[in-house]
C-alpha cells in the first residue's frame, strides 16, 4: 500500500472543453488585431512606410502602427541597436502590456550585421529580451516583412508565440546581460518581479544572483519633477 502511494498520479486536467474553444477564439482575435509600436531603430525602418501604406498595405492583415507602448502588441526592432538605444528599447519593452511580441528585423539584430565590430552596438538582441521572430536581411524588403508578420500571426493563432512569458520566467538571465552592459546599478521603472508574481509566471530563473544585485542597488522611484525647460529665469523685480 505504502509503495503504491508513492506512484505519482498525474491528475489530468479535465477542463471545460468550451474553455479551450474560448482560448482559441481569443488567440484568433488577438492575431488579427495587432498594433505595432511606432519605435524604430537603425536603417531597416525605411522599409516600413511602404509596408504600411498602400503599396503593400499591412492594414489588410489587421496590423497598424500605434504610438504608445502601453497600447501596442508588437515591438519591431528595425535594425542595429546601439547600446544607448538598447536601454530605451528595454524600458519600452517593459512598459508594454502583455502579451507582447518582439520582432527583430534586419541582420543587425541577429548578430550585429555589418556593425559586428562596432563598440557601440549590441550584437544579440535575444540576450536582452525574448525575440519571437527574426526577419533577416540587410534590409528585408516589405514582402519579407509582411510574410514575417504573417508567420507571427500564425504563431499567435497556434499559441506558440509566448516568448513574453520567458522574460518573466527567466528574468535573471536577461537582467544579468543587461547589467553586464549597463553596469550593476541598472534599474528600470518597471518592477518585473512583482509583475511576474501577478501573472503567476514566476519560474526557476526569475530570481537569482542578478536580481539580488538589483535589490541591493534599487532606489525607490520618485515622481518626475514638473518643470518647464531649464532656462526659465526668475522674473527680475
Amino acid at each position: 500500500m505504502s509503495r503504491l502511494q508513492k506512484i505519482p498520479v498525474v491528475e489530468e486536467k479535465k477542463g471545460n472543453p468550451l474553455a479551450r474553444v474560448f482560448d482559441d477564439l481569443v488567440r484568433f482575435c488577438r492575431s488579427r488585431s495587432l498594433f505595432i509600436l511606432h519605435y524604430c531603430t537603425g536603417c531597416g525602418a525605411i522599409e516600413l512606410p511602404p509596408a504600411m501604406t498602400s503599396r503593400f498595405d499591412m492594414e489588410r492583415l489587421g496590423i497598424q502602427p500605434m504610438v504608445s507602448p502601453r497600447q501596442a502588441d508588437i515591438l519591431l526592432i528595425t535594425g542595429y541597436v546601439s547600446i544607448k538605444t538598447l536601454k530605451r528599447v528595454i524600458l519600452t519593452y517593459e512598459q508594454m502590456g502583455s502579451p507582447k511580441y518582439v520582432v527583430g528585423i534586419c541582420s543587425c539584430t541577429v548578430n550585429g550585421g555589418m556593425y559586428w565590430q562596432s563598440y557601440a552596438t549590441a550584437k544579440k538582441l535575444d540576450e536582452y529580451m525574448p525575440v519571437d521572430l527574426y526577419i533577416a536581411g540587410c534590409m528585408p524588403r516589405p514582402e519579407a516583412v509582411i510574410s514575417g508578420l504573417q508567420k507571427l500571426m500564425d504563431r499567435i493563432n497556434s499559441g506558440e508565440a509566448d516568448s513574453w512569458q520567458d522574460y518573466y520566467r527567466n528574468y535573471d538571465y536577461y537582467l544579468g546581460n543587461q547589467q553586464k552592459l549597463f553596469g550593476e546599478d541598472w534599474q528600470t521603472p518597471t518592477d518585473i518581479i512583482t509583475e511576474a508574481k501577478h501573472y503567476e509566471l514566476m519560474g526557476e530563473g526569475t530570481l537569482g544572483q542578478h536580481t539580488r544585485l538589483l535589490e541591493q542597488h534599487q532606489k525607490p522611484l520618485e515622481a518626475l519633477e514638473m518643470r518647464l525647460g531649464h532656462n526659465i529665469k526668475e522674473p527680475v523685480e
Binding site: 559586428w116 550584437k123 544579440k124
Partner: peptide
Amino acid sequence: EFDSEAYINEHLSWQEYNPEWL
C-alpha cells in the same frame, strides 16, 4: 590604439548567422 574588436570580444557575445534558417 583602441581595439574595437578586442572590446566587443570582452563585452558582447556573438552568434553565427545561421544559414539553416535561410
